[in-house]
Design a protein around this nucleic acid. Structure first.
Length: 645
RNA sequence: GGCGAUGUAGCUCAGCUGGUUAGAGCGCACGGCUCAUAUCCGUGGUGUCCGGGGUUCAAGUCCCUGCAUCGCCA
């Protein structure tokens, strides 16, 4: 069996964040798992580089789009190796080969009549240079430019997606695993219960020229999906590459839920139009919330994978992400929870089991794994549990239930810790007559650890190398380990020498209780020498605490009363991003006198809904005894978004 | 507005096709051990299983309804 696994290609309008890291780590873990099953795996990731957001960002940065794309793409290429992730291909939509493939496919689909010229109409904002949806409008105006968008219609090319709707519904019904988990399959089916509209796949070059030219009309470029999705084919050499022949039939895509529709609807219909079989499975995962808030640039709580890695180490991050999220559902990230996982699961349970077992083999058996003698029920129980772990783990991994697969391993770790307590090797070691019994116990521990180290390899490759090395399996022998040949009990050869090494995982100091919403960019490691006790001076906060507040200068761009409220005003501020803030100042200021003012805002306050409007920050003001109110202000104007400290 | 999901211990969650005193991990309290990374093991408590109604001999589990949160669509 082979496997072709992909992550989405990441859009180069942002740097890698926790979500990218999760998808990619899942893909890598699954790749490693299938390789551990002796299968042939091809793993692809990459970057998506065309489109108006990129053209715009490049313009803002004063460089060419290609240069901009090169820069950000490089950040993605460099992000993965430190996590022990080595994709077989890193594809870019600006690759020559990709561009040619997209054009070939467009021509083919056009020739067979599935692409036609039609007209597209919508509300167009000249300032934004794009169509806005009704939802984005504020009082019928563009929130960024305060102008009413023009209803215009323009010619564009469309893909006849609707033609394949019935086929797709049928395919999803006949293949229950086509889209998993089931909730997303249901969502897609529900969407498909309404007639599909054809898909607009072009943009006139007069508006956007950063894209792939349509081969049959040089006045247009391809828009988004007909470019991006095709990476899955161009990356393996469609139409006549050897790898395409080998891997397309076994393709599985991993995505986050925000791009479900393109992958579950556009992509299969595109493939059908091309006369290709659809992919095998689509695995859809949820979002990581940060301290219960959505991760977003405007809140300023974006978590960078590299920061995490430096703070916690690769395998702790990999383990945490796989263990904490139930694949398909949202999960929440916080420094506290990752510290808790590291301490309890990794340091106390696994690390300590490993350390105490090896120490005992070293002390009580001269540093070699002894031969087991007669078995007692508890030995059989442990061996049975370890064998069962391998099969249960395998089936959970197949189903993308990484958290459950890991739980299976931890139930054996916990059993092994109990096994030590009940068999008391340190007591056995004191009586020479008990040596055979002692040897049996030590052998069982070594063998259990070998199997644990074997199955944990996909999730924690680095740790497993350390474990295998300590147990006398090193280098080449370790690389050749697999579940098929080495997944059963009893393969450790008595007499093999163990090597003591450093602890697998250090225990981390628990940070003192924190209110939610710490600044995630902050380094978690305080100087251990600092020694300042927090909370000992009632009412005083440390400078570190203060630093967690992100205070910014916000310029008020628009203000309006919120219906049904006497006190609340809805403010649109620039800091420098545009965001909505609700302030309880309507009794003191009219909307008109506020526009243009600069005030001080708490920029990383957890968003909250007031009278139905979500507020992303808090404006600072002072209320005097007489009931008056004065807004915070600066002595002279500064660039919006400047930091206040 | 339409469709759907979710609501279970302080926290995070598991509870398949309805069936004995509702579970796990973390946290907390107490006890034990000393091989080990102040680790490990044992014991313990708390739950109107979101509210209300219904079906059934029996409902956290099915049906209706209300509330809350979230998602998709419009």
């Amino acid at each position: 069996m082979s496997l072709y696994i992909t992550t989405p290609i990441y859009y180069v309008n942002a740097q890698p964040h926790l979500g990218h890291a999760y998808t990619t780590i899942v893909a890598d873990t699954y790749s490693r798992f299938r390789r551990l099953c002796k299968e042939d795996v091809r793993f692809q990731t990459g970057t998506d580089e065309h489109g108006d957001k990129i053209a715009e960002a490049a313009r803002a940065a004063g460089i060419a789009p290609q240069e901009y794309a090169d820069r950000i793409s490089l950040l993605f290429q460099e992000a993965w190796p430190p996590f022990n992730i080595k994709p077989d291909t890193f594809i870019r939509t600006t690759d020559e080969h990709h561009i040619r493939t997209v054009q070939d496919i467009l021509q083919k689909v056009y020739d067979q009549g599935d692409i036609y010229l039609g007209s597209y109409s919508g509300l167009y904002c000249r300032g934004c240079e794009r169509f806005l949806t009704e939802k984005e409008l504020v009082d019928g105006k563009c929130p960024d430019h305060q102008t009413a968008p023009q209803p215009i219609s323009e010619s564009n090319y469309f893909f006849r997606m609707s033609r394949y709707q019935d086929w797709l519904i049928d395919h999803i019904h006949k293949n229950p695993e086509f889209i998993t988990p089931e909730r997303y399959r249901n969502e897609v089916l529900s969407f498909l219960s309404e007639p599909l509209e054809d898909l607009c796949i072009s943009r006139p070059k007069s508006r956007l020229d950063w894209g792939i030219s349509l081969p049959f009309d040089a006045d247009f470029v391809t828009y988004v999906w007909f470019d991006a999705l095709i990476n899955y084919l161009s990356g393996i050499g469609y139409p006549d590459g050897e790898e395409f022949a080998q891997y397309w039939a076994v393709a599985e895509h991993i995505i986050a839920k925000d791009i479900l529709k393109p992958h579950a609807i556009y992509w299969p219909t595109m493939l059908k139009a091309l006369g290709l079989a659809p992919y095998q499975r689509l695995h859809v995962h949820g979002y990581w919330n940060i301290n219960e808030a959505k991760m977003s640039k405007s809140i300023g709580n974006v978590v960078r994978p590299e920061t995490l890695r430096q703070d916690f180490g690769v395998d702790t991050v990999r383990y945490f992400l796989l263990r904490e999220m139930s694949f398909g559902l949202d999960a929440s990230f916080s420094d506290e929870s990752i510290v808790a996982r590291q301490n309890s699961d990794l340091a106390n349970d696994l690390g300590n089991l490993f350390s105490r077992s090896l120490t005992m083999i070293n002390k009580f058996a001269g540093g070699t794994v002894p031969s087991p003698a007669d078995l007692e029920p508890q030995d059989k129980e442990l061996a049975g549990a370890a064998s069962h772990m391998v099969t249960a783990y395998t089936s959970h991994m197949q189903n993308f239930a990484f958290n459950r697969a890991l739980q299976e391993v931890w139930s054996v770790i916990s059993l092994a810790n109990r096994y030590i307590v009940t068999s008391e090797p340190w007591v056995l070691a004191k009586e020479p007559s008990k040596t055979p019994r002692l040897n049996t116990v030590l052998y069982h521990l070594a063998e259990t650890l070998r199997l644990i180290g074997l199955v944990l390899e996909p999730a924690m490759p680095e740790t497993c190398i350390k474990m295998a090395t300590a147990l006398g399996i090193s280098g080449d022998a370790h690389d050749k380990q697999n579940l098929v040949d080495h997944g059963c009990w009893g393969l450790t050869r008595p007499g093999v020498s163990i090597k003591l090494g450093a602890s697998l995982f250090p225990r981390l100091d628990k940070k003192s209780k924190q209110p939610p919403q710490p600044s995630p960019t902050k380094k978690k490691q305080e100087s251990p020498k600092g020694g300042i006790k927090e909370g000992s001076d009632a009412g005083l906060v440390s400078f570190d605490d203060f630093k967690r507040f992100d205070l910014r200068v916000a310029e008020i761009k628009a203000a309006e009363k919120i219906n049904k409220s006497d006190r609340l005003l809805k403010l649109t501020v620039m800091a420098p991003d545009t965001r909505t803030v609700v302030a309880g100042i309507a009794e003191f200021y009219t909307p008109e006198e506020l526009v243009g003012r600069q005030v001080i805002m708490v920029a990383n306050l957890k968003p909250t809904k007031l009278m139905g409007v979500t507020s992303h920050g808090m404006i600072l003001a002072s209320k005097d005894e007489g009931g008056g109110l004065a807004l915070s202000a600066l002595t002279h104007g500064v660039p919006p978004g400047s930091k206040v400290s």
